[in-house]
Write a protein that binds this DNA or RNA. Structure first.
Lengths: 346, 346
DNA sequence: ATTAGCACTCTTAACGAGGGAGTGCTAATA
DNA sequence: TATTAGCACTCCCTCGTTAAGAGTGCTAAT
């Protein structure tokens, strides 16, 4: 019984590997031939039929070889595939790229999504950190002329958020300076998510002293923290076109995939769900609930700031992808990004 | 003779319009039928043959209809096509989108490229302003903790450039404040391109007073102004996929187009050349010198800050595009962006 | 439990024929 | 001289046919 199961697994594994490599359905005869299988093709056929019945495989038409279903891929990812490391060159390449230039968060984001797409030959992405539950280190208000102010929030080393604020009244430079001072005194060290409430509390407590200024400050804070959305950086969607071309079986829906990728909202939503927990996650085919991406898989991991998960990164590609490699890549890059965000001047 | 030429032009125009609309070669009979042409198809055939001989048209095989060459499109754009306006709805739509949320330059950039792609059904793009020759209004240095400083350069209302600077020595907050003050005194009102030299001059003149600080300031300026590259925002490349699909004659090379578009370097280069002069420009097929884009056209215009051209925006699509419409769109959006950049608090 | 054998299915490529669209040319016409 | 009718010719496209090939599913034998 155990022996039997082992063989079945092995066959499933071979089918998936073959299909991933060649984009052609795996045939029973082929499996026996190419993988030195100690049984006849007929036996393999029986097993394949079982696997199909149990939902791990299908075939596009009666007499084609087998290709994996989502369930098949899922089983492979969870139980069958062996961990893999990137090659030395690849790791070196990544390290070098980051070393070359990395100033500011934006650069890191761009770099990362590019990196991911380049090595995976899939579309790579990275979410900008969500910082709501992180602590404010420092706030700076810069007068931009006119009625505009630039609010710069320093959260962690390397993590900066800035936002232009449009006022409908004038504010003298001296006032701005005083407000800035007050805000820093009162708000530093608090989590970003509490800024608003905290402002209200301050105003209640200290209403006597400098009410006008505080009201102004409240307005500023209100504007600086509205619509605190994550952004997504995405590179390499051209790769997807290429890999779809190889695929013989479903050309349809490439357009919708592209649209979905470009729209980014969908990706954002999918990834946001994955951020909930740490570590490398794999979403196969319909497991992500958007029909536009039903023929695609997402491999992603998270990165932290301090000990808090603040963002995610990963790759998107056709279901038929080299999962072990992809997992290794995403894992590695996540670690690199972690290092960058947490090492310097932390 | 004049009459003769008019007819020829008319026929060229009809061929182009037809091909743009339907993606099918225009046949002599078809022209007569669909456009109430007061001659026989034979006559038209003669003219078509002439036009082909002169290089304005080709046909993909002996007995297919005619399609325009680059030269044909060029003539159409320069001499034949009639100016067109966007529909009321479209203009309203654009205006509304911009009104909805526009804080900060980044938002405007993103908005614009999205807008362009949405209405044109092509890939839309916009270059961020190149500000080298604009005047510095104000400079602000923000300590980010560790050895990092954020330099915020205010150039015009709405035009802000910021850059994180990595030092390899510590800088006290008081020092930073003094440096900031000096920089503002000495550098405000100068063009960005002269910052470096100006710093050197200042140091020479005032070396006696506070040499150390000035040297530090020089370092900061040096870093803040290096690699002042334009960025490009690009949306809607999925649209290109769709329009290529319609085309029967050249499927090949879609991959390379996508790669080119995503790489952005090529687009950047092409557009940068177009920025030289004002107004709407059309580049047809091979006129842009990159073979990857030989089957595509670029319609672009520039936008200004003050009275200086600082950036470009436009759309990219297959040669077979509705030029009049595209020109109208690009023109309109360029004007809107101009308004935004120059109106408020200017 | 495994396997050999074979019929059956479906794909793919190649081929050819027929129809159709459209041109190019020539000769007639206004 | 400019236009047009007419017609042969070219080339594509579609469809049906065919043949080969790949691979399965099943049955019966081991």
């Amino acid at each position: 019984m155990n022996d039997f199961k082992e063989r079945k697994k092995k066959i499933l594994q071979v089918v998936i590997r073959h299909y991933v490599r060649t984009a052609r359905p795996a045939a029973s005869g082929m499996i026996v031939r190419d993988y030195d299988f100690p049984f006849s093709s007929a036996t393999v056929r029986n097993v394949l039929a079982e696997l199909e019945e149990e939902g791990y495989l299908t075939h596009p038409y009666t007499s084609a070889g087998r290709i994996p279903t989502d369930k098949g891929y899922r089983f492979y990812v969870d139980r069958l595939m062996e961990a893999q490391k990137l090659t030395q060159e690849e790791e070196r390449h990544i390290a070098r790229e980051y070393r070359a230039k990395r100033r500011g968060l934006e650069e890191v984001m761009r770099q990362t999504s590019k990196m991911l797409s380049l090595i995976s030959h899939q579309a790579g992405f990275i979410l900008t950190p969500t910082l709501d539950r992180n602590f404010l280190k420092h706030i700076e208000l810069v007068a931009l002329g006119g009625k505009r102010i630039l609010a710069v929030l320093v959260i962690q080393a390397g993590l900066i958020r800035h936002k232009t604020i449009q006022l409908n009244y004038d504010l003298k430079r001296s006032q701005l300076y005083r407000i800035s001072k007050i805000l820093n005194e009162k708000l530093s060290g608090l989590p970003l998510s509490q800024m608003r409430e905290e402002m209200n509390r301050i105003i209640e407590q200290e209403s006597n002293k400098y009410l006008g200024l505080l009201q102004t400050a409240k307005g500023l804070i209100g504007q600086a923290f509205t619509s605190e959305e994550s952004e997504i950086y995405l590179e390499g969607s051209a790769n997807i076109l290429a890999s779809v071309k190889e695929d013989l079986y479903d050309y349809a829906g490439v357009g919708s995939v592209f649209r979905a990728i470009e729209e980014k909202r969908i990706i954002l939503d999918i990834v946001r769900r994955l951020v909930q927990s740490e570590g490398v996650k794999v979403l196969i085919g319909k497991e992500n609930l958007y029909p536009e991406l039903k023929d695609f898989s997402v491999v992603s991991s998270t990165y932290k700031s301090g000990n808090r998960v603040v963002g995610a990164l990963g790759i998107i590609g056709p279901k038929r992808m080299e999962y072990p490699k992809m997992v290794a890549l995403v894992d590695f890059v996540a670690k690199v990004v972690n290092n960058i965000l947490n090492s310097e001047g932390g």
